[in-house]
Write a protein that binds this DNA or RNA. Structure first.
Lengths: 343, 343
DNA sequence: GTGAAAGCGCTAACAC
DNA sequence: GTGTTAGCGCTTTCAC
């Protein structure tokens, strides 16, 4: 590679300010042991010279790294791009950079990504996306994350994971209760569920919320068909097709995220099933387009961008003695995809 | 920061392999001047030890950086998250990391982001998102990009920019011709356009395509109302409201991206205007939800994820003597939001 | 409170 | 073809 533009270095700032390189470093990195007068002067000079620290040199010398890694299942999924948006907003505000990578909802890939980020001496890691019900699935990732944190790295997760780190917890169970209440209150008794893999904590928690509501009415989740498929639009289409074929008497389909709900609506439309006339449909997350579907999707709003901001904020803070947990809250958004049971 | 886990260093690999640190470096970074036997051996040892290069040390020593920066307007926008998805896919395949940052469709912020990436000694920069019709708006960014490239950095842009670097060019003008042809062929004569800022090349090019079609029929763009608003869903709502108020006789609204089209559909629905019965609506981009709207949106498909992959591939290649330009092609996707003119 | 100097882990001349 | 060595720009003891 050809020579890089000779940037202004710390030594230049030090010389121009008439101080030693050590003093300049201390002034700029905000460590103590410099008189305020000198520190201010150095900062002024640095600004005038347009000095920007070389993060590689800083990291190599053992300084702090102003970068975080964000691991999402797939950035093209609106749920994750909203979260990423929140993370990037805070990152920009704090002068940090963010590396984003895909896990593809695959524990092995996730592990690889974590290892890469650690090897790159990243300052913090945010894992967005559901954990796994079986702790063993993410045991290696957990070990890696913990060892990273022990060595000074910051860690935050979004979603329920079996690892004792700061976490942003989406209101999955309570949200599911809200939407299930709503559907049952409309008189629906024969419901079906379009779910992603039950091995994900997100699914488990949302199912648990539905179960809560059912039990309050003397029923249980075991009585209702839970059709598992990909946690995507196509998975929703597939699930709806199976529900139509095997549980054609269902009057409501609860999809466990909006992507699946969109697929469900698509299949229902193709099959000529009126929503909500014949079948009511609900989603979860309230991705931006949910209100623009026709019918508008009844769903549970999770503050995705805010969750990203929170996670980033947690990852910025010095680690607490015990892991912080922040719950997000949720809002039931009733639109036109649900209506009273007619059968 | 506490001590980092003592990672295995190049020296460890060299010692274990019984070679000098220089030979080890050469073997691992794939530079020539090492016998194949030795290089293979070193690589085996490195693998066994779980060695991962310290990118900071490598960069500081003047080696190549395996990271690219991607600048998007807003990652929450499906157009950009699809592009990002393509970029990340290629990045992962090539063992590179990607830093993503927001420009917020603001030239000043974009400039700042470029400067940050350069200061961080990033290996390459991909600018996604429209350029500006007025070259002066991005003059500083252009200078920065060029200087970055001169010093060995790789650069690729997505969209038409006034800078001589590798580019992925969305089929804006031809795509707009396709959709305009389609609408006019349906008998619509009084059309209106919901556009983003004409200062963006994307808008200018799409308008130019519509103009082409109009001129072929002895008309021009000057006769049709072009309502400018934010290049977002809300902008689409606003534009539609103004079109309804000021050009209520229009039988077709061409929105210049899907986000705006979604807003247009929303406003029309609220106003009780039947689509496509009374008014036909078209979008541009074919974001994933376009087909799930009701009515399904007639639009122009751009291969967004593929565009991200292409840009990343360009940014990976050694710079050519003259800038490469890749056009994307497009597909007119006719759904239910367009129909014959009835008035 | 400030400065001198020893590295951090790696690449790239430059010797051999 | 392989080894020796001088930095890359910064932080951080350790003296003063």
């Amino acid at each position: 590679m050809p020579e890089r533009r000779s940037a202004v270095r710390l030594a230049d700032v030090a010389e121009r300010a008439g101080v030693s390189i050590a003093t300049a470093s201390r002034s700029l990195s905000g460590s103590s042991g410099v008189s305020v007068r000198v520190a201010d002067h150095v900062r002024t000079v640095a600004l005038a010279l347009g000095y920007v620290v070389n993060p590689h040199a800083r990291s190599l010398a053992g300084g702090a790294t102003a970068s975080v890694g964000l691991i999402v299942h797939e950035i093209g999924d609106p749920y994750f791009s909203e979260i990423a948006s929140g993370v990037l907003r805070v990152a920009a505000r704090e002068g940090m950079t963010a590396q984003i990578c895909h896990s593809g909802r695959d524990p092995q890939t996730e592990l690889t990504q974590i290892r890469t980020l650690v090897a790159h001496r990243i300052g913090g890691i945010i894992v967005a996306g559901s954990g796994w019900v079986d702790p063993r699935v993410q045991a290696d990732a957990k070990a890696e994350l913990l060892s990273f944190r022990r060595s000074g790295g910051r860690v935050a997760v979004i979603g329920r994971h079996h690892v004792a780190v700061d976490a942003v917890l989406p209101d999955n169970q309570a949200g599911a209760r809200s939407v299930a209440e709503h559907v049952l209150a409309q008189g629906h008794r024969r419901i079906a569920i379009a779910a992603g893999s039950r091995r994900l904590t997100t699914i488990a928690d949302r199912l648990a919320g539905i179960d809560d509501v059912l039990r309050a009415r003397g029923r249980t989740l075991d009585e209702v068909p839970v059709v598992e498929a990909d946690f995507t639009r196509d998975g929703g289409k597939e699930a709806a097709a199976r529900i139509l074929a095997e549980h054609g008497d269902a009057t409501a389909i609860l999809a466990l995220n909006d992507a699946m709900a969109i697929g469900v609506l698509s299949t229902l439309r193709s099959a000529g099933v009126d929503v909500p006339g014949q079948v009511s449909v609900t989603g979860f997350d309230d991705v931006p387009v949910a209100e623009d579907l026709a019918p508008g999707l009844t769903t549970v709003r999770l503050p995705m961008a805010r969750m990203g901001e929170l996670a980033m904020t947690l990852a910025l803070k010095a680690p607490a003695a015990r892991p912080r947990r922040q719950t997000t809250g949720h809002t039931l958004v009733v639109r036109d995809s649900t209506g009273p049971a007619r059968r």
